[in-house]
Amino acid sequence: MTKLNINGNDIHTELSADTPLLWLLRDELKLTATKFGCGLGQCGACTVHVNGQAVRSCITPIASLSGQTIETMEHVNTELMTALKRQWQVHNVPQCGYCQVGQLMTASSLLNQNQQPSIHEIEQAMSGNICRCGTYGRIKTAILQTAEQLATEIK
């Protein structure tokens, strides 16, 4: 049995220790905001936070997560995420929308660690997230605008 803390709840599962977190989230817990994309950890659609860090849930075995805090989009309801979502809308980032949860989870992890990232730091942090619609420029702008907005509100 594996014990995990997901979205503030202690979860006990009998799934095999090598089961990817994504399948526990989607199939067992019905937390479907986290998407299945490539299954190889290369597209970022399955991104969740583990101890605040962006992690690919499709390649992360549940056994490796014991004692760690896991958050999905269903639970991340912070001022930062609200600000990011607002800028996503302002800059018309979502097109098909499939990658957006992973994009937002990665962006929020970045801004939690670095409130004033450079373009290079944004590109580096977001490089593992694929957007089939090609809205990368809009994503970068939305992240920069969010950082600027939050910096202004803090002062």
Rank of each mutant, 00 (worst) to 15 (best):
L84I: 08
Q89K: 13
M73T: 15
K30P: 10
T78C: 12
D27E: 15
V101H: 08
Q103R: 04
I59A: 02
M73W: 12
C58S: 08
Q115D: 15
N112Q: 15
T82L: 12
L65P: 13
P117R: 04
C58N: 03
H91N: 15
E28K: 15
L111P: 05
T47N: 14
K35H: 07
I62T: 04
T69N: 13
K30R: 14
P94S: 06
G102H: 05
G39P: 07
E74R: 03
T78N: 12
Q87T: 01
G102T: 06
N77I: 06
Q115W: 02
R56A: 14
F36E: 13
T82H: 11
G39V: 07
Q115G: 13
G44I: 09
Q87H: 09
C43V: 10
N51M: 10
L84Q: 01
L104V: 14
I59R: 00
L110R: 00
G41N: 00
S108L: 06
Q68F: 11
N77Q: 15
S109Q: 00
Y98I: 04
C96M: 03
W88N: 01
C96V: 01
V48S: 03
T78K: 09
S64I: 10
P61L: 06
Y98C: 05
I70A: 07
N114R: 09
E71K: 13
Q95P: 08
D27Q: 14
F36D: 08
Q100M: 11
W88E: 00
T69D: 14
A83F: 01
T60H: 02
I62G: 04
H49Q: 09
T34H: 01
C43T: 09
V101G: 08
G37N: 06
N114Y: 02
Q68H: 13
S66E: 11
D27I: 04
Q53M: 07
T82G: 06
Q100P: 09
G97T: 02
Q68S: 15
L104I: 13
D27M: 06
T47E: 13
M81P: 11
G44C: 09
G37Q: 06
Y98E: 03
V50E: 04
E28D: 15
